[in-house]
Amino acid sequence: MRYLKRLLPLAAVLGTSLAALTPGNAADETKTVRIGFQKSSTLATVLKTNGELEKRLAALGYKVSWSEFASGLPLLEALNVGAIELSADVADTVPVFAQAAGAKLTYVAQEAPSPTAQAILVRPDSPLKDLADLKGKKVAVTKAAGAHFLLISALSKAGLKFKDIEPAYLSPADGRAAFEKGAVDAWVVWDPFVSAAQKQANARVLADGTGIASYQRYYLAASAFAASDPKVIETYFELLQSTGQWVKANPAEAAKVLAPVWGLDPAIVETANGRRSYQVRALSAADLTEQQRIADVFFAEGLLPKEVKATDAEIWSPTGKKSSEVEKR
């Protein structure tokens, strides 16, 4: 995985090292499921808060351990090296980069598209009015994130190349700081960061993903774990589905649960959640069309070390169903 380490050094983005996450001996990790998540991992955060996953897995003889990551790429790196077994949702771009680096990962579930949940932001007094105005400008974006693909696709829509802008590869926290100081002309990011910037910094949306990038998020597992512990995967999948349904049916209550965890006003959280589908579904190879488009775009930009065939990835299916028999869109 040397490519991923060159791309985004883990030491810069993890609050703890992978070594610290890895148990000291095999006995320690027996019956423990380690799950990685991010701030934007809404459903995992709800499950972590309400303890429902721990309760369900305890009945199967498992404990749960949670580890937070700054972004999706180091999360999947941890999954690949055996520091965790399951990932909460990551942006659609992230599995593509992991796949290019040879990671042994299995798709567990997909969230239906949420194109408005990521956006290109400018300050309220910015002279930038449309995408073509980005030419020659400095734009903050997290490398390999879904926002990165949104930016490349938005530039293409405006007849521009990625080389026509000056990218500033920053984490969401650093991107927000640079944006507010005026060190960058625009910032490309996802919710809840979008909603927070709109409310707290009066940020203006230059463009979101509508008609540009579908923004489907994915839940993954280490392939060896998916094969050896199918009951855990099945339980995780079922709870993700029901939690997604609960969040959409109870927006105000969900916001109250998430607000103190995220350190945001409930109104901001509710706005952010309104832009995410949270429709968790099983997937088949046919559902990876957008993944292939993402892989082709990043390879063409020289950001992937090799071509990636999205359908080469392993895909988990619910009990009794083959990948070709999962719910049709």
Rank of each mutant, 00 (worst) to 15 (best):
M1W: 07
Y3T: 00
Y3V: 03
L4E: 11
L4S: 10
K5N: 10
L10E: 13
L10A: 13
A12K: 15
L14W: 02
L14I: 01
A19L: 13
A19I: 09
G24T: 12
A26W: 04
A27D: 14
K31T: 01
R34M: 03
I35F: 08
Q38I: 08
Q38A: 08
Q38K: 14
T42F: 14
L43P: 02
T45F: 07
L47Q: 11
K48L: 14
K48G: 04
T49D: 14
T49A: 15
N50W: 09
E52M: 10
A58Y: 01
G61S: 03
Y62M: 06
Y62I: 06
S67Y: 15
E68N: 11
E68P: 01
A70H: 09
L75T: 02
A78D: 08
L79F: 03
A83R: 06
S87P: 05
S87M: 03
V90I: 13
D92V: 00
D92Q: 12
T93K: 00
T93F: 04
V96C: 04
Q99S: 11
Q99R: 07
A100P: 07
A101L: 05
A101T: 03
A103Y: 13
K104L: 02
A109F: 10
A109D: 07
Q110I: 06
R123C: 05
P124S: 15
D125T: 13
K129C: 00
K129M: 01
L131C: 04
K135P: 01
K137I: 03
K137R: 15
V141W: 04
T142R: 12
T142M: 11
G146N: 08
G146R: 06
L150S: 05
L151K: 02
A154M: 00
L155A: 01
L155W: 00
L155F: 00
K161N: 13
F162L: 13
K163E: 13
D164H: 01
S171V: 04
G175I: 02
A178M: 10
K181Y: 02
K181N: 13
G182F: 14
D185H: 14
A186K: 12
V189Y: 01
W190G: 03
A196Q: 14
A197V: 03
K199S: 15
A201E: 11
A201I: 02
A203P: 07
R204T: 04
A207R: 00
T210G: 08
I212V: 15
A213G: 00
A213R: 00
A213I: 00
S214F: 09
Q216S: 15
L220E: 12
A222C: 05
A222R: 14
P230N: 06
K231N: 14
Q241C: 08
S242R: 14
T243C: 06
V247R: 01
K248I: 09
A249Y: 10
A252L: 05
E253Q: 15
A254M: 06
A254W: 01
V261F: 06
I268P: 08
V269F: 10
E270R: 12
R275C: 00
Q279K: 12
V280S: 04
A282Q: 12
L283E: 06
D287L: 03
D287I: 07
L288P: 09
T289R: 13
T289F: 01
Q292T: 06
D296K: 13
V297R: 15
F298L: 14
A300T: 07
E301R: 11
E307V: 08
V308L: 05
A313E: 02
E314K: 15
P318C: 05
G320K: 09
K321T: 08
S324V: 07
E325F: 04
K328N: 09
K328L: 09
K328G: 04
